[in-house]
Write a protein that binds this DNA or RNA. Structure first.
Lengths: 186, 186
DNA sequence: GCTTTATGAATGAAGG
DNA sequence: CCTTCATTCATAAAGC
């Protein structure tokens, strides 16, 4: 991109690590603490997908111990998490596999001591059950993104990330294909 | 956290050697080549703002010729590009009064392009008029007192967010179905 | 090589 | 449920 525009004016970081309840957390949107996320994730993994109002209330109440939270946050969290889980599953892409053994993506917690300034999201690796994928739907890709191939019968074709990798490989630096496409391929 | 692992909270990307198209590129984050950016920009300028999945795929396929790319990269690119365009424009037009004539905010171009539901073709140019903004559409002022009860047409329970009082009293109506939650409070 | 900027990626919040 | 927007986080690239 070539936007020689000025950047920003007086950026202000807020994102207290867990100071939702204690610190002077700025209003705005809910910023879950690590504990909250962990618990929510655990619930999700336990199979909870669409909590009822009652469940939401209870969850919210419990999580309020770790920081400010509202019911709607819980509600949205599950909505988003579920949707994005599905979304990423749809993404028929990039899974590293050797021969026919698919290697789950490395979790790359290489530099743990990277104390970033603004990174306040405490990392909590929390391994997940890894099930092997036995059928690579796509050719082969290499990326760190994983997916558990899931056959979804969605009526609409509005899957978000569908990716078919077109393998290309050449070390020619000066390659320059006929970049003339007037968007015609769309 | 990346969206690849549901439990992976602090997944850090491996450093990338950024040898994108030519060299051995590690997968840190996608680093588009000049050609890719050029094409994407051109598409954007042609009016494409929110490509459909199908378009994303085609674009991705085309661009993969110039270097490694995934669909989600295209998706994110358009998301970001559109958002930042808007952001920039908003920032500038915060006080754009042409002499004395103030153009009233026309609902933020909502209905300009909404008619068109993303056909398979490139959308119409969709000129962004973006007039000045007199009111902060989404000013987040923390008001603890109220809760915007989201009227959500939930089939099962109609009382979605009720913060003021719990709807069910103490009877605790329905016990949770098939949830095998280890979290006791539910 | 350290700081600043540009931008890829993620996610909370809505709208429909 | 699905899509989209706003904001934020993280980091490669650019500038000093």
């Amino acid at each position: 991109m070539n936007m020689d525009e000025e950047g920003d004016e007086g950026g202000f970081y807020m994102r207290s690590s867990s100071g939702n309840g204690g610190g002077g957390s700025k209003c705005g949107r809910w910023n879950p603490t690590a504990e909250q996320v962990k618990l929510l994730t655990e619930l999700f993994r336990s199979g909870l997908r669409t909590p009822t109002t009652d469940q939401i209330q209870k969850i919210s109440t419990q999580l309020s111990f770790y920081g400010k939270i509202e019911s709607k946050n819980v509600f949205y969290w599950f909505q988003n998490h579920k949707a994005r889980e599905r979304q990423k599953r749809r993404k028929v892409s990039t899974f590293r596999h050797t021969n026919n053994i698919i290697i789950p993506p490395k979790s790359t917690s290489s530099n743990i001591n990277n104390n970033n300034l603004r990174n306040t999201r405490v990392s909590e690796p929390e391994r997940v059950i890894e099930t092997l994928q036995l059928f690579p739907l796509n050719s082969f890709c290499e990326s760190e993104t994983d997916q558990k191939v899931r056959v979804h019968a969605n009526c609409r074709d509005n899957s978000m990330f569908c990716y078919t990798h077109h393998p290309h490989g050449h070390g020619d630096p000066m390659e320059h294909p006929p970049l003339d496409l007037r968007l015609s391929f769309l």
